[in-house]
């Protein structure tokens, strides 16, 4: 369970990214955070695993008060939270399976990491993760030979191999074409339904958010302006979140 209690974030340049955010996300939810770029989506998401630290308020994740932990404790805490990025953030010059295995490095000792040693169990579990996202057969080729959609699947497999309780996805489909974007979103849904992992996605495309997520959080200028089931979203609410009519770019799937 993730609990934001009056959380605020002010950057050192004085820019206020979050103001008095309060919300609760239960285990196993599929949440999409929508809003204009610069509205604070990314800050909200990244504060959950303390990639960004908050300046005020209380943030509890599975009973851990995030602002209180650092160093070793923080790293241990992060092992239970997976993260997926817009630009995939794979190590392109190494094989797919090494990328997946890299999420297990946190638990290993430095020498094993230095020599790239992984046990049979770890390799099998990495292959299972690749199988879940449907690219088992790509395991031994170099990551830079994959298409964008396949790269994002590898990134997802890397996160799954970590056995997380929560997956945070920061604009995971923004660099993909519409068909790829939909199928990667389906992967997220499948994982969420089958394994009860909480999935929180920052997303620019409203239609993808409405189609795949169960719950929508609309954020504008650092404040939550909507929080509810995706079924309750109306055009008026979208106008409020975006401060204007949404444009075609944000409406990726045309109403067909």
């Amino acid at each position: 369970m993730i609990e934001f209690n009056n959380v605020s974030k002010v950057y050192s340049n004085g820019c206020k990214a979050l103001s008095n955010v309060s919300l609760t996300i239960e285990q196993g939810e599929f949440v999409a955070i929508i809003g204009l770029s610069g509205a604070g989506k990314s800050t909200l998401l990244r504060s959950i695993n303390k990639m960004h630290s908050i300046s005020d308020g209380i943030l509890n994740v599975n009973g851990v008060e995030v602002s209180k932990i650092k160093g070793k404790e923080l790293r241990k805490f992060r092992r239970n939270i997976g993260m997926v990025f817009q630009s995939f953030n794979l190590v392109r010059r190494t094989s797919v399976i090494n990328n997946v295995l890299s999420s297990k490095a946190a638990d290993k000792n430095v020498l094993e990491v230095l020599f790239g040693y992984y046990s049979k169990e770890e390799k099998i579990s990495a292959l299972e993760a690749l199988d879940k996202v449907g690219i088992l057969e790509k395991a031994y080729i170099r990551a830079d030979q994959l298409s964008g959609g396949q790269m994002q699947r590898v990134a997802l497999a890397r996160t799954l191999a970590q056995n997380p309780k929560i997956i945070l996805a920061d604009e995971p489909v923004a660099s993909l074409d519409p068909i790829m974007a939909s199928s990667v979103m389906e992967d997220f849904t499948k994982i969420n339904k089958e394994t009860n992992i909480t999935v929180i996605i920052n997303i620019h495309h409203v239609d993808l958010a409405l189609k795949y997520a169960d719950r929508i959080i609309g954020i504008r200028a650092g404040e939550i302006v909507f929080d509810g089931p995706s079924a309750n979203i109306t055009d008026d609410i979208l106008t409020e979140i975006y401060g204007r009519e949404i444009n075609d770019d944000e409406r990726m799937i045309k109403n067909d």
């Binding site: 049979k120 390799k123 292959l127 299972e128 199988d131 088992l136 031994y140």
Partner: peptide
């Protein structure tokens, strides 16, 4: 079924 595919893929790892 899926288990055996994974084992198969594991055995194919570059030595």
């Amino acid at each position: 079924m899926s288990k055996s595919r994974i084992i198969e893929q594991y055995e194919m790892r570059p030595k």
